[in-house]
Computed example of a mutant assay.
Amino acid sequence: MITAVHQFLQLLDRGMYGLFYYAGHGYERSGRNYMVPIDAPQPYRPENCISVQRILQKMQERRTALNVVLLDTCRKWYNSDCAVSTVTPLKPLGNTVYGYATSENAEAYEVQDEEFSSGIFMTYLKKHILKEKKVTHMLEDVLEGKS
Score class of each variant (00 low, 15 high):
residue 90 L to S: 04
residue 54 R to E: 15
residue 100 Y to F: 15
residue 78 Y to I: 11
residue 52 V to I: 15
residue 81 D to K: 10
residue 87 V to R: 00
residue 86 T to D: 15
residue 79 N to W: 10
residue 93 L to S: 14
residue 94 G to Q: 03
residue 63 R to M: 10
residue 107 E to Q: 11
residue 112 Q to P: 00
residue 93 L to V: 11
residue 75 R to L: 03
residue 51 S to N: 12
residue 89 P to S: 07
residue 109 Y to R: 11
residue 40 A to G: 05
residue 98 Y to L: 07
residue 91 K to T: 14
residue 49 C to Y: 07
residue 92 P to D: 13
residue 101 A to M: 04
residue 106 A to N: 13
residue 62 R to G: 04
residue 67 N to Q: 13
residue 103 S to Y: 01
residue 42 Q to T: 11
residue 60 Q to L: 13
residue 57 Q to L: 14
residue 68 V to S: 05
residue 116 F to W: 14
residue 49 C to G: 03
residue 55 I to T: 14
residue 64 T to D: 06
residue 100 Y to P: 06
residue 45 R to W: 06
residue 64 T to I: 15
residue 96 T to C: 11
residue 61 E to G: 07
residue 55 I to D: 14
residue 111 V to L: 12
residue 90 L to P: 02
residue 81 D to N: 12
residue 88 T to I: 09
residue 64 T to S: 09
residue 44 Y to W: 14
residue 54 R to A: 05
residue 63 R to D: 14
residue 48 N to W: 00
residue 90 L to G: 06
residue 87 V to F: 00
residue 101 A to K: 02
residue 73 T to K: 02
residue 89 P to G: 02
residue 49 C to N: 12
residue 115 E to L: 07
residue 79 N to S: 08
residue 79 N to A: 07
residue 49 C to I: 06
residue 94 G to R: 06
residue 102 T to F: 00
residue 76 K to M: 06
residue 47 E to F: 03
residue 70 L to N: 09
residue 54 R to V: 07
residue 82 C to A: 13
residue 110 E to I: 02
residue 106 A to L: 01
residue 83 A to V: 04
residue 40 A to H: 07
residue 101 A to P: 01
residue 40 A to Y: 05
residue 103 S to N: 08
residue 108 A to T: 08
residue 102 T to L: 02
residue 50 I to R: 04
residue 73 T to G: 04
residue 110 E to S: 12
residue 101 A to W: 00
residue 85 S to P: 03
residue 58 K to Q: 15
residue 81 D to P: 00
residue 104 E to I: 02
residue 62 R to H: 07
residue 55 I to G: 11
residue 50 I to F: 04
residue 109 Y to I: 08
residue 52 V to T: 09
residue 106 A to K: 10
residue 115 E to F: 07
residue 80 S to E: 15
residue 108 A to P: 03
residue 87 V to K: 00
residue 85 S to I: 08
residue 106 A to H: 11
residue 90 L to A: 05
residue 88 T to R: 13
residue 114 E to G: 02
residue 60 Q to N: 14
residue 113 D to Y: 15
residue 107 E to L: 09
residue 109 Y to A: 06
residue 114 E to R: 13
